[in-house]
């Protein structure tokens, strides 16, 4: 038996050089099991954390896109809401909002529409060529005015824009109304429309809401 063991020992001595060299190479120590699990857990935490950060950004981004280019249905749903916000329904602004809310519940979260009475003509300032309008900003919801505005008149129960030879650039252009929050804007439409004839009118003023979306304020007045 001893001779056989020695024979085996000698035979092992003649195995391939590559195996012998490999057995003498520095050992690559396998990472401990807990290290592997810890690394895996860290990776999972990173992915979850990144997802928690990125997904809300995607949602916010996609809702912003839908506002910028709303589908046809959204436009038609929003139009009546805008009408409700005119001075025509100023007596019941509280009812107007809940009507718009079910149509676009997601949008309501990010878009706070100004109240109908926040944009109103000062009656004693009205002339045939000009009027003063007060703009009331709610706390933390400062509106920015677009440069253009237009006048509409009532015909057959509908509001129709007055025809104009010019596109008016108003002096208070694209600037946020100052806080606190009530300011008076002077509109001189003579270059646009000349002298108005007696009748019911309303002044349409596009604004930019605090969330970046656009909206149109209306203020009605009467020319005697």
């Amino acid at each position: 038996m001893k001779e056989q063991s020695e024979k085996l020992f000698r035979a092992i001595g003649d195995v391939g050089d590559d195996l012998i060299a490999r057995a003498d190479a520095p050992v690559r120590k396998a990472p401990r099991v807990w290290v592997k699990w810890a690394a895996l857990a860290a990776c999972c935490a990173l992915v979850i954390g990144a997802a928690a950060f990125v997904v809300p950004m995607f949602r916010a981004g996609s809702s912003g896109l839908s506002k910028a280019a709303p589908p046809a249905e959204a436009v038609t749903m929003e139009a009546p809401a805008e009408e409700k916000m005119t001075l025509e329904t100023a007596e019941a602004p509280a009812e107007a909002m809940p009507e718009a809310a079910p149509a676009e519940p997601a949008e309501q979260k990010t878009r706070t529409l100004p109240g109908a009475d926040c944009f109103a003509v000062v009656p004693e300032s009205v002339t045939r060529t000009a009027a003063d309008v007060t703009l009331t900003n709610e706390d933390g919801a400062v509106l920015a005015l677009r440069s253009e505005y237009w006048l509409e008149t009532q015909a057959d129960g509908d509001w129709q824009p007055l025809t104009s030879n010019l596109l008016k650039a108003q002096s208070q252009t694209d600037e946020a109304a100052p806080e606190p929050s009530v300011c008076t804007l002077h509109y001189d439409w003579q270059p646009l429309y000349g002298e108005l004839t007696p009748g019911e009118y309303r002044l349409a003023q596009p604004v930019i809401l605090p969330d970046g979306s656009e909206y149109t304020l209306y203020a009605e007045f009467t020319i005697e």
Partner: peptide, 28 residues
């Protein structure tokens, strides 16, 4: 002896690297 060495060489190449090396560390 040479034939036996060749058989052992073939056997060792069937083993995972670490087992093979541990065997050779002990018996080579």
């Amino acid at each position: 002896a040479q034939e036996l060495a060749e058989a052992i060489d073939r056997f060792l190449r069937t083993l995972p690297e670490r087992e093979c090396s541990i065997f050779l560390r002990r018996y080579w």
